[in-house]
Design a protein around this nucleic acid. Structure first.
Lengths: 184, 184
DNA sequence: ACCTGAACACCGTTCAAGT
DNA sequence: ACCTGAACACCGTTCAAGT
């Protein structure tokens, strides 16, 4: 890769991160190109589809997910508290940009989506948390990680699109958690 | 209203119902106008926003919702079976057109959405089913109808956008139901 | 009073011409 | 090898001209 191409690549990702934050994941591509100071064609050369661009932007804040999962696993809190803290982190992360929950949750389990690997990171982190609780005998049988990601993602999508308060989200997550934990 | 205006109104709603079924609720407005045989301006005169048009189309199949709720209430099935049948009907109805779950669920509880009254129909029908189960002592405390509509709607949104199978939907609804019923 | 459709605006995407 | 930006396509929305 030539030096100017590399530089442009960086500038585009940086601009995209800004624009996505301000205007959501559906923001005009052209504004990103302008903000990055490159022509539209250059942007398309580096990122043929919007999803490729999203993938590049999401990359940076996905690593924090693993740390959050580790923290949830380490704690000796009740299953309820563990799941609530973890799910709230999950929702917050994927909701960082408007349109994020829908984009990420609908790509979940879809192998040929450009952002599939990011979804896998999420799914595997979630699986680790669930597995830990299962070991402790706190989870109902037959709950699958992918399914839980979709349920929690569904809550995030609705909250994102209807601009719901964090309290509404917690309250919805609470119902989900009731459905997941084994109360003996 | 003049006779030709009335006729056009009907033709537009009819065309919209067709086009929405074929191409989803985000289908090009212009195709609806063409199919109805009217100019774009005429369509906009009758329905200033897309939501106004959606409202008119949704009207017809919303009445069936009340019947489904009545049926759910009348049965002496277990809380689980009652809710599963009702939620599946709920999801099917709002998923009739692609994009329907997102449109309807994000308008839920939003007083100044053009389709608010349709959402109220859904919410009230759901409330009747929940109330009946609560009377029988089968429901956990503190579950609100609006919240349940959003949770079930969230499942429908994800299923719609990720093209999930009916089995996946049932399985997700099952988790929700676990979280709603009081197992003593 | 209502309708038409050309016109404008906006945005995604491509590609000929440049360096 | 990579970049630019004009050009094209598509679609939403308006409005002057018509009946």
């Amino acid at each position: 890769m030539r030096a100017d191409a590399l530089k442009n690549h960086e500038k585009i990702v940086e601009a995209a991160a800004q624009v996505f934050t301000e205007r959501g994941l559906d923001a005009p591509i052209d504004e990103i190109a302008t903000r990055a100071g490159v022509g539209a064609g250059t942007l398309y050369r580096h990122f043929p589809t919007r999803d490729d661009l999203i993938d590049a932007v999401v990359k940076s804040w996905m690593s924090q997910i693993d740390a959050a999962a580790d923290e949830a696993i380490a704690s000796d809190n009740s299953a309820r508290d563990t799941l609530m803290a973890w799910f709230e982190t999950y929702v917050t992360r994927i909701s960082r940009n408007r349109g994020g929950p829908a984009k990420i949750t609908s790509a979940m389990g879809n192998t040929d989506s450009p952002i599939f690997s990011k979804c896998e990171t999420l799914r595997l982190a979630n699986d680790r948390v669930l597995s830990r609780l299962r070991e402790r005998g706190l989870l109902r049988d037959g709950v699958e990680s992918l399914e839980v990601c979709r349920l929690v993602g569904g809550v995030a999508v609705v909250a994102d699109q209807a601009a719901l308060s964090p309290e509404s989200v917690s309250s919805m997550l609470s119902v989900l958690i009731n459905g997941l934990i084994d109360e003996k």
